Amino acid sequence: MRNRKSHRSVRAIRTSDSVLPVQAGVVAALLVALTGCGITIPSDPDDTLGHAIGAELRIGIAVEPPLSEDGDPPRGPLPELAIEYAETLDASPVWSIGSEETLVEMLEQEKLDVALGNFSPDSPWSERAALSRPFTVDGADPAELVALMPLGENAMLSNFETFIDSTERAQ
């Protein structure tokens, strides 16, 4: 006579084994279907990166010598970083100068694509703006800075992080 418990546990394993390939197939089919729809990951719900490419990169600068100084255009290591980034997007920099709070408000109102200042990785603005991975520039104190971008605009954030990685500024 067979032991029913053993039979059931073997049967349960077989059922589980057959479900896994089906689930993987469903996930693969969904990914193929979404790719055909033009959905990319990471994405920008407001298409921040898409609007900047080949057009204008709206950059907010908090004037904080020696990192950045007021001028037309602003001067210093942070504006230089922003100009380099804009070049990778074939975009013209459009500058806004303001306090940290003003720049964060402008990000929330979709008036800026990126804000640069003496923002640290433990920035109090993290609930209102996306923070990039830490990076460094000449004259930075503390040694690590982050850029601020609109919340949810993950393609823009990812693109900026790829840029800082390529310039070997990432921490």
Rank of each mutant, 00 (worst) to 15 (best):
S68R: 06
A62I: 08
D46V: 11
S43Y: 11
L78K: 06
Y85K: 02
L78H: 03
R75C: 00
T48L: 14
V63P: 00
L81R: 08
P77S: 13
I59R: 01
I59Q: 03
V63D: 04
P65G: 07
L78E: 05
I59T: 09
P77H: 06
P74Q: 10
S68P: 09
D44L: 09
P45V: 05
G60H: 06
S43D: 14
T88A: 01
T48F: 04
E87K: 14
A52E: 02
A55L: 04
I61F: 06
L81A: 05
E56F: 06
V63A: 12
E69M: 13
G60T: 09
G50Y: 08
V63L: 13
L57Q: 08
D72P: 00
P66I: 10
Y85N: 04
T40A: 05
G54R: 12
G54M: 09
L89D: 05
P42T: 10
G71E: 02
I59M: 03
A62W: 07
P77W: 07
P66N: 08
P42G: 04
E56P: 01
E56S: 10
E69H: 12
A62D: 11
S68I: 09
D72F: 09
V63S: 13
L78S: 01
L81V: 09
I53L: 10
T48Y: 04
G71Y: 05
L67I: 11
E87D: 14
A52C: 04
D70F: 11
L67A: 06
P73H: 12
P42D: 11
P65Q: 12
D70E: 15
I53K: 15
P73S: 09
S43T: 14
R75Q: 15
P77I: 00
E84L: 10
A86M: 11
E80S: 12
P66Q: 09
I83F: 01
L67T: 13
P65A: 11
A62H: 14
E56V: 10
L89W: 04
E64A: 14
V63Y: 08
D46H: 15
G76N: 10
T48P: 00
P74L: 04
T88E: 00
I59H: 01
D46S: 13
E69F: 05
L57M: 11
S43A: 08
L89H: 05
P45G: 05
H51A: 15
T48A: 15
L78Y: 05
P65L: 07
I53P: 00
R58W: 11
P65T: 14
L67N: 10
G60F: 02
A82V: 04
